[in-house]
């Protein structure tokens, strides 16, 4: 178990979470950031890294990933620490008012302030509507490939038509005893090279490729044993398998944060616009995850919210000190 002590625990490494590190750093507060994705940047890196953004002040146009890279450069001086590819699970409030945030990887972050900058929530795998799917999770059904060796000499069924379904089909065809890829369409629109390779593997008999079909049910006795595949004419085929890996991308869900006693309206956390504090003392919510009258889900609004949040967070981190407002143009950026 990893135990981290810091001033502010930020949940979410999107642009607003990253900029919160800067605003906190100016006030000598250290930050640790947790994000479920394996990379920083949130939606910008995960959904639209190559899209241009036109409403960041000072940048007539900036590519989303370039903005993330610029923010990482900007906060480097404040030496933030990160737990990436970890999902925040629980929050505990200690008697002295500080918090312990725990992740699914048993990381514990002890902080005086918690800032939720979780965007639209925690990115989780999109699950196909197959009855009983969840009861086989971890018992033959998984939504990502963590350890390919698990599948050595096993029978696998993958479903999906995106790049990850293609890439893992190609990779696992060398590992598993049999790989079957089930796809609703009859073509793949992902990377043309990968699609061609998958068709070649099917032609040479190295994989089974079942097009214009989808999985309708799964069976097993404690562990997955069989999937039922329905074709375009509604014909059904049963296929024995050890594992099923549905690969349909990621979709954000609010997740465990919904259970923390925060006031929530339509999957967003209600805040006081004075400082973007929530109804729980010491917890703030900034960026797309909060809501208030007049809320606009814009990155630039999240930056503003981060600045105001930091002013109020200061009193939890340094309860005995008086905060005096300072311009970076006068005092510069003083590193830790």
């Amino acid at each position: 178990m990893e135990h981290i002590k810091t001033d502010i625990c930020i949940i979410g490494a999107g642009p607003v979470g990253l900029f919160a590190v800067f605003e906190a750093g100016l006030l000598k507060m250290r930050c640790h950031i947790i994000d479920v994705l394996p990379q920083v940047g949130g939606q910008l890196s995960e959904i639209y890294p190559q899209k241009p953004i036109y409403d960041i002040p000072g940048f007539p146009v900036i590519n989303a990933q370039d903005l993330v890279n610029g923010l990482m450069d900007q906060i480097e001086t404040f030496k933030p620490t990160f737990s990436l590819a970890e999902r925040v699970d629980t929050l505990e409030r200690l008697d002295d008012g500080s918090f312990i945030v725990r992740t699914n990887e048993n990381t514990e972050v002890h902080s005086k302030v918690v800032v939720i900058a979780g965007g639209l929530g925690c990115f989780e795998p999109r699950k196909p509507a197959i009855e009983g799917l969840e009861q086989f999770e971890g018992k033959g059904v998984s939504y990502m490939v963590r350890n390919p060796e698990l599948y050595r000499d096993k029978k696998l069924v993958l479903s999906g038509g995106g790049d990850s379904a293609l890439d893992w089909t190609i990779f696992l065809s060398e590992v598993a005893s049999r790989v079957t890829l089930v796809h609703r369409g009859d073509t793949f629109r992902g990377a043309p090279d990968s699609a061609e390779k998958v068709f070649d593997l099917a032609k040479s008999g190295k994989i089974n490729l079942i097009l214009q079909s989808h999985i309708t049910s799964i069976n097993g006795n404690g562990h997955l044993k069989e999937v039922t595949i329905q074709g375009k004419n509604n014909e059904q085929t049963n296929l024995e398998t050890d594992y099923l890996i549905p690969l349909f991308g990621l979709t954000p869900k609010l997740g465990p944060i919904a259970e923390w006693g925060l006031n929530i309206d339509k999957s967003a956390i209600e805040v006081n616009t004075f400082d973007y504090s929530t109804n729980v003392e010491g917890i703030f919510a900034i960026g797309d995850i909060n809501t208030y009258p007049g809320k606009l889900k814009l990155i630039l609004c999240g930056f503003h919210e981060a600045a105001l949040m930091a002013q109020s967070a200061f009193k939890y981190v340094y309860p005995d000190q008086k905060l005096s407002f300072k311009y970076t143009t006068v005092y510069g950026v003083n590193t830790f």
Binding site: R126, K127, P128, A129, S159, G160, G161, G162, H183, R184, G185, F188, R189, G190, H214, P246, F248, G249
Partner: peptide, 15 residues
């Protein structure tokens, strides 16, 4: 267009 078709390919419930 191409991007819409790529995204729909990732939906398990697409028809």
């Amino acid at each position: 267009q191409e991007q819409e078709l790529i995204t729909l390919d990732t939906r398990p419930d697409a028809t």
